[in-house]
């Protein structure tokens, strides 16, 4: 019955030099330099793994709640039960119990009751952006519009698709810009969870969509909720970098206090507009420069 611990020592200690036979003695100087470098890497890796474990736990909790409500045969799980990250519940007290949110919740529940696969993302992933990036870890925000509407694409993180799913053209363009900007290699998949865990909030303005009907859940109340999320970040935090791509995202800058935060704007990475101001925007390196100026660890954008 004993479960193995879920962490190993290689999460804490870095490999030292490969063993030689016979081993040549290392100089004290290189030992010291090595030790201090390892310490920094060690801390970063520790923090990342801790946050990754937390996001997995949040996901598991959502899955449990969804399956429990299905078993009970009652109506679908309420929206408020799907936001499980405590730091966001503290930052947004009572938000999902407000009248507009209850109306939104009823709407989403009735849409979901039309059957599995009609609404994206899957129910347990609706709040994945918040459940994967705790409030206190938010360093940057990338605002999308609404989830991908093809089967299997949406995973609750803006612009992101699970491994194994074809990378959508907007994301292809994002990777092209990232390559041009920071020299990152183009990944074989489009899962951006690694960004989310590091503190990049991948938020869509509208968190659900009907299959094959882009923006079909607009103006049902999601915008009011996500505006509150953005305003809360702006009011309660400092030094967050907002990456606003496209007109819809840019309009949200009215919610952000630009005296406290950094707002980067560009055209949308969609194929229709990427050449008119997204390519060449260098938002990834600029984000990291801003973070480093503030003494915050930069984002490792390489997937």
């Amino acid at each position: 019955m004993a479960s193995a611990p879920s962490r190993t020592l290689t999460d804490f200690f870095q490999p030292a030099s490969k063993r030689l036979k016979p081993t040549l003695p290392a100089s004290c100087k290189s030992d010291d330099a090595n030790a201090s470098t390892l310490s920094v890497d060690q801390k970063l890796r520790m923090e990342y793994n801790k946050l990754l474990a937390k996001s997995k736990r949040n996901l598991k909790l959502c899955v449990e709640r969804v399956s429990k409500s299905k078993e009970s045969g009652l109506g679908g799980v309420k929206l408020e039960e799907l936001l499980v990250e405590e730091t966001w519940l503290e930052a947004l007290p009572g938000e999902l119990q407000k009248p507009y949110a209850l109306t939104l919740s009823k709407f989403v529940e009735s849409e979901i009751s039309g059957g599995d696969g009609v609404i994206f993302p899957p129910t347990h992933l609706i709040f994945n952006a918040l459940n994967s990036t705790p409030f206190h870890t938010v360093k940057a925000v990338i605002l999308g519009q609404d989830p991908y509407h093809g089967p299997g694409q949406a995973m609750g993180l803006s612009f992101s698709v699970p491994e194994g799913i074809k990378v959508p053209s907007s994301l292809v363009n994002i990777f092209k810009e990232l390559h041009q900007d920071l020299g990152c290699s183009i990944p074989t998949h489009g899962n951006l969870q690694k960004w989310a865990v590091q503190g990049v909030l991948l938020l869509n303005a509208v968190l659900t969509v009907r299959k094959h009907q882009a923006n079909s859940h607009a103006k049902k109340g999601w915008e009011q909720f996500t505006d509150v999320v953005i305003k809360t970040i702006s009011q309660k935090k400092e030094g967050v970098v907002f990456l606003l791509w496209g007109n819809s995202a840019r309009e949200k800058s009215r919610l952000i206090d630009a005296r406290k935060h950094h707002v980067l704007t560009a055209a949308h990475p969609s194929g229709l507009s990427a050449n008119r101001g997204f390519f060449g925007c260098r938002h990834f390196s600029r984000t990291n420069q801003l973070l480093e100026q503030m003494g915050i660890d930069p984002i490792d954008w390489q997937l």
């Binding site: 193995a4 611990p5 879920s6 962490r7 999460d11 804490f12 793994n49 474990a53 736990r57």
Partner: peptide, 18 residues
């Protein structure tokens, strides 16, 4: 002897990935 701590009491068994 060095031993890695468990993250939380009810932590799932999956190994963290970087």
């Amino acid at each position: 002897f060095y031993l890695a701590p468990k993250i939380e009491e009810d932590e799932e068994d999956t190994k963290p990935q970087v």
